[in-house]
Design a binder for these strands. Structure first.
Lengths: 215, 215
DNA sequence: TAATAATTGCCATGCACGTTGTATTGTAGC
DNA sequence: GCTACAATACAACGTGCATGGCAATTATTA
């Protein structure tokens, strides 16, 4: 009685894109439960697919996980780079444009991307039990790629004399830190649009001028 | 043959402080393996204690975990508040003293405190499977308490005219973000003392003056 | 040293889960 | 409709693990 009631709509048909369904379901379950807790049965159910089919597409739970984090990294990186490109193309009023960038950066947190960040937390916690090659590949496809992109944009702003030009990599890190929310989703409180704006504004001001009195 | 060879030195005696031994061992194992992966047997072995004794002191794996994170939060908070008190007492040269504070803040990362931060990552990842009360208690005993302490110190600096006085809570968050290392221990690379100094210096400069050209 | 409490070893139970084999069935293209 | 192949249902195996029960053993205390 535990098998047939978990899968609500299994029309039993639909060949072909099972693999994508599995990856999507696995993302959901891995992000929610973590690697060890996540059971293949739960993933299969979430994907609307038989357990056996999962093993038909992926040899291992481990390989499935690595595929999931790789795809997650790629998708998230695409999205974030899109945000970067969109907002750094037309910088005229530095502070105002950075604030708009920060809002766009911090806002998508509310929808589908929440899963990606939950997965990132799982990776951070489980890093000691994930093969180093997988971690490296993930880092390179995700965070590092985005950071390099942002650093390039910052370098361009420095060339235009709008920012200091020393160590654009670290400057990029600082910017991202200051416009991102702390507290990853405890108590499931979604910050309002106003709170995001306020946080981002404060972050951008700190990024540009710092907190010293005389600045 | 799996039971007797894991515990190397079990002199079989030594009543009394078993509870502390269990807590310490549990911290090690939980921090390394996470809640689900961590087995009671592994914890008992790490603590040099029989499996049965664990259940003699704690009813559940869950209760043991909550005790561990609570103690971890308390210890880490004490240590961090000590660092805050030590460095914010004698602020004369703001930038130089903040840099020294940041170095002291980021350096202990190398020893015993690594476990605490690994545990924090586990909590962040597993938050959805930990009772809300436990999360709240942990937050209050740990991060929130430290942040409030730091905010108080920042408020005092603002009163002395050294920092802007708007929203000291967020200012505290910004300071901590900027002097902390990103990348939680992938590839087990321990940053050198020089690297820490460089990162902290850049962070404090950004905290005080920002990255804008004209500042 | 006697009595009380804590610790241990060992066994046992029950469950959840990864993984595989196999026979069956649905689907796509001829 | 027939064939080749993917998907499924079902069952089964092995394992790891949380948890509990005793009885023997050791430490603490009076």
């Amino acid at each position: 009685m535990t098998r047939s009631d978990t899968a609500k709509s299994r029309p039993r048909g639909g060949l072909a894109d099972k693999r994508r369904a599995i990856l999507t379901g696995a993302l959901t379950v891995f992000a929610r439960d973590g690697y060890t807790r996540a059971s293949i049965d739960a993933i299969a159910a979430e994907a609307g697919v038989s357990t056996r089919t999962v093993y038909n597409h992926f040899t291992d739970k481990a390989e499935l996980f690595q595929s999931v984090i790789q795809e997650s990294a790629n998708r998230a990186a695409e999205a974030q780079i899109a945000v970067i490109d969109r907002h750094f193309h037309k910088i005229t009023d530095l502070e105002q444009d950075l604030i708009e960038f920060g809002i766009a950066w911090a806002t998508p947190m509310t929808a589908e991307h929440a899963k990606h960040f939950a997965l990132v937390r799982q990776i951070n916690a489980d890093a000691g039990h994930i093969p180093k090659e997988a971690i490296d590949a993930w880092q390179q496809a995700g965070p590092q790629r985005v950071r390099r992109e942002l650093a390039d944009r910052i370098r361009q702003l420095a060339d235009r004399g709008l920012l200091r030009g020393d160590d654009p990599e670290r400057t990029a890190i600082h910017l991202v830190l200051l416009v991102s929310d702390v507290e990853p989703s405890y108590s499931a409180i979604t910050p309002t649009e106003e709170e995001i704006t306020e946080m981002v504004t404060a972050g951008v001001r700190a990024f540009l001028h710092g907190h010293a009195r005389d600045s």
